[in-house]
């Protein structure tokens, strides 16, 4: 049986009321893992929130969303935070940042901002290697103008990613329980935007789980470097 994931939740605040709503809906929708963006929170506050979700039977992935303006800002943030967070997503709003983010191994997810032109989107996605492209449903749900422009942008992103064999991740990007969507519903929207049925289902289950598995392995004490792990500590 598939395990479903909502890889991006950015709560508007970390108050109990909002977190309880998120827990309730995630249990209702059979979501087993949630990626919560923890911005400007202390470590003890983060562990309290993680405990709360774990008690309800939901696994949490610590996630950081970076929106750098320059290449140097991006590299500085990556150096500072890579060892702390399980997922790092870069929201690209210009070509310079998107090209660096696409190349850097420390970045897990690349998300394309709404301000980017189709030409720069193409440039950015063409260079993505070894990482995933994230598409957030909140872009569609919160668009104030015509949804057609958003659909066009997302359709373009998906078609370029498919052409370059870049794996896609669909996430809700929810700020509260009203914006959360069931993973199968997100997959249905993915099909509408041009994904195959299997690809769409993988984008809400298999692809995000593979990232989490890999990154948790890297953050564990046993991992030394690529291909080298501590197997057993010798007894004295």
């Amino acid at each position: 049986m598939r395990r479903f994931v909502d890889f991006c939740i950015i709560p508007s605040s970390y108050e109990d009321e909002i977190l309880d709503g998120l827990i309730k809906i995630s249990r209702l929708l059979d979501i087993s893992l949630i990626g919560i963006s923890f911005c400007q929170l202390k470590q003890n506050q983060i562990s309290k929130i993680i405990m709360k979700f774990n008690e309800a039977g939901i696994d949490i992935a610590k996630r950081l969303d970076i929106t750098p303006k320059t290449r140097i800002e991006l590299l500085k943030e990556l150096r500072k935070n890579r060892g702390i967070y399980e997922i790092i997503c870069v929201n690209c709003n210009n070509t310079e940042v998107s090209i660096v983010a696409s190349r850097d191994r420390r970045v897990d997810l690349v998300s394309i901002g709404q301000k980017m032109t189709l030409r720069s989107i193409r440039k950015a996605i063409n260079r993505i290697s070894n990482k995933h492209l994230e598409i957030r449903m909140s872009e569609i749900l919160t668009s104030t103008k015509s949804k057609i422009n958003v659909f066009r942008k997302l359709y373009e992103e998906i078609s370029i990613a498919k052409y370059n064999k870049v794996p896609i991740i669909l996430s809700s990007g929810a700020k509260n329980s009203f914006m959360m969507r069931s993973p199968r519903d997100m997959a249905a929207l993915g099909i509408f935007l041009g994904l195959d049925k299997i690809e769409a289902l993988n984008s809400v289950s298999k692809n995000p789980l593979s990232i989490i598995k890999e990154n948790r392995k890297k953050l564990s004490n046993r991992w030394i470097t690529e291909g080298v792990e501590i197997y057993r500590v010798p007894k004295k």
């Binding site: 809906i25 209702l28 929708l29 449903m137 569609i140 749900l141 949804k147 329980s177 009203f178 914006m179 959360m180 969507r181 069931s182 199968r184 519903d185 997100m186 997959a187 249905a188 929207l189 099909i191 509408f192 049925k197």
Partner: peptide, 22 residues
Amino acid sequence: NEVRASLALITKINDHTAAIHV
């Protein structure tokens, strides 16, 4: 899948905030 996608895009019912979950 078409019905699921259109249900997922519902954010308002009678001009009030709403969401529909399958």
